[in-house]
Amino acid sequence: MNFATLDLNLLRVLDALFREGSTVKAADRLAMSQSAVSGALSRLRYALHDPLFVRQGNRLVATDYAAGLETGLHEELERLAALLAPSATFEPRTAEGTFRIAASDFFAELLMPPLGDLLQKSAPNLRAQLVDLVPNDYVASLERRKADIALIPDLVLPDWVNREPLFHSPFQVIARKGNPGVVGLKNGTQMPMDTFCALHHVLFSPEGNLAAMGDAALTRVGKRRQVAMTVPVFSGICRAVSESDLIALVPAQLAEKVAKAFGLHVFKPPMEIEPALIIGIWHKRSDNAPMAAWMRSQVFELMKGLDPGS
């Protein structure tokens, strides 16, 4: 295929065929005649050297080659629409698009449920995607357009990245209610240092590190804990603790959110740990992108509600 000679209007027809599965419905969607859509499909087949669709009953089914184009084509057309749309015309209720949030699965529990509810009510055609937060690759994900924002602990950033403080995240200790190591300890009280250091821990670490902020705090008071396991997702931490005699140090907001569902006791840690400041970051090139600006404001407002002082 010679891209330089391809009629880009054909890509809109291809997108409509993906969405509708019918030349008749695609024609209605595009305000074209069915014959014009069929003609465009023939030109696409010739240009791309593939049938693109086969008929199955009353529906057109994408070939394997065409199916591989579908998601990328939708996304690129959305980006073009956002690029060309005047900022003054952005209306959440009718806007279409995808917004990617790079963050740990902590935010699957704390952000995505209220964000889903908000979008259903205010912007039903916008999609939010929570994508993996790759360790030490936060900024690169913005640069490569793999994410629209990243939700991360505070750090030094290049000057082309904008940041907004969202909330402080203290830490709490979780243990299952039947854990013999916490018998006699009252839920919500401070766990004794000897208990904390004697019990085995499961540690959140996407990189597989065996130490984190809690270990630095312990070192300052001349103590060590026993890390028996590392897990790259918080959901795995909570599950491991709920089904074993392991304990874990996790963000307070998460502990309070999942304690009932997982049957957990929640305790204050025995040492002082500076609460982590969680920030939202984004590339300055999207400062004035209407959809991105609106979505940032919604996400950030929800996240600021997690601050213990709010």
Rank of each mutant, 00 (worst) to 15 (best):
D117W: 01
G188P: 04
V183K: 15
T189S: 15
N136A: 15
G181I: 01
P153D: 15
L126E: 11
A147R: 04
G184D: 05
K146Y: 12
E143Y: 09
G97H: 00
R100N: 06
L185P: 09
W160Y: 15
A175E: 04
F107E: 14
S104W: 06
F167A: 08
P114M: 03
F107M: 12
F99R: 07
D159N: 14
A140H: 11
V139E: 10
F99M: 06
A102G: 06
F171S: 15
P158R: 01
I174F: 09
V161Q: 02
N179I: 06
A128L: 10
E143G: 14
A123P: 11
L133Q: 04
L130R: 06
L111W: 08
I174H: 12
A102V: 03
A128I: 11
L110Y: 08
Y138N: 08
A128K: 08
P135F: 02
F99L: 07
R144C: 08
F99T: 06
E143H: 07
I174V: 15
D154F: 10
G97P: 02
E109R: 14
I149P: 01
F99G: 10
K177I: 09
L155T: 14
I174N: 13
M112V: 12
K121H: 03
L119Q: 00
P192I: 00
K186I: 08
F167K: 04
A140K: 12
G181T: 02
P114T: 01
L142K: 01
D105Y: 03
L119A: 02
Q190H: 01
G116Y: 08
N136P: 05
L142G: 01
L119G: 02
K186P: 00
W160R: 13
P158L: 03
S169D: 12
F106W: 09
A140W: 08
Q129C: 05
L166C: 15
S104D: 12
I174S: 11
L166T: 14
A128C: 11
K186A: 13
F99D: 10
K146E: 15
Y138R: 05
V131E: 05
P158M: 05
M191Y: 01
L166R: 13
L110G: 07
P135Y: 04
R100T: 05
L111A: 04
V156E: 15
I149E: 02
